[in-house]
Design a protein around this nucleic acid. Structure first.
Length: 209
DNA sequence: TCGCCGATCGGCT
DNA sequence: GCCGATCGGCGAA
């Protein structure tokens, strides 16, 4: 059954709330007639031009223009010349912030994901921002600037995740000299095996106790 | 299981 | 030129 997509008003709010509430939601992407779905288990917030880890901290450029776009639009960029990362833009148009989709639990289209990824273990299909874009065939040319509220790329209502099952950590992959390195803007489903950076996450959660 | 390293290229200084 | 919101393979422990 086709789930219902979040509307633009869902994204026209504080980025932290959107990131938190996307946990348990469903990412859906249709390419070449095949639909893949996954339950979102990990997100990160990039909260604006004052956030040194946010691409928009350099201001509005050709690259970052998408971050200033309307709520619910896709900001898809290439990292390390090799991997795509998918974000959903938050807050009103003109405010540069977004939620990075970092990991999902595969639900539908798993065979296609396996073919696209070519990895040994299913756990490596979608447990990272570059991995999930590969598994779902999300690329910049296909989806940068598209809307997550309708069409081939959607974010949909799923089963909400209770606070007791959620953990918050600093974001992954932020350079140690970045002033925002420690900001707690990563949300995960605490016990999901599908989250990225598993050993780092375990270490951080243990140290925080 | 951990840590290191190379791949690969567009955007920015 | 430099470096990154990453990933997978490798060798060591």
């Amino acid at each position: 059954m086709r789930p219902r997509a979040f509307g633009a008003e869902f994204y026209d709010r504080d980025t932290e709330h959107v990131a938190r509430e996307l946990l348990g939601g469903v990412l859906e992407c249709t390419v070449d007639g095949v639909t893949c779905r996954g339950r979102i288990v990990e997100t990160e917030a990039y909260v604006g031009e004052h956030d040194a880890a946010c691409h928009a901290s350099v201001g509005r450029t050709a690259r970052t223009a998408g971050l200033f776009g309307p709520p619910g639009s896709a900001y898809v960029y290439l990292i390390y010349g090799m991997y795509w990362c998918a974000n959903v833009v938050t807050r009103a148009e003109g405010l540069a912030s977004a939620v990075l989709l970092r990991a999902v639990e595969p639900l539908d289209g798993v065979d296609v994901m396996r073919r696209r990824r070519g990895v040994r273990r299913d756990l490596d299909l979608t447990s990272g921002p570059g991995k999930l874009c590969d598994a779902f065939a999300i690329t910049g040319p296909r989806f940068h600037g598209a809307s997550f509220t309708r069409g081939a790329l959607r974010l949909c209502e799923g089963t909400p995740v209770p606070d007791a099952a959620v953990a918050v950590t600093p974001r992954v992959g932020i350079n140690a000299k970045n002033s925002a390195v420690d900001w707690p803007l990563r949300w995960i489903v605490r016990d999901s095996p599908w989250v990225s950076a598993r050993s780092d996450t375990r270490r951080w959660l243990n140290a925080a106790r």
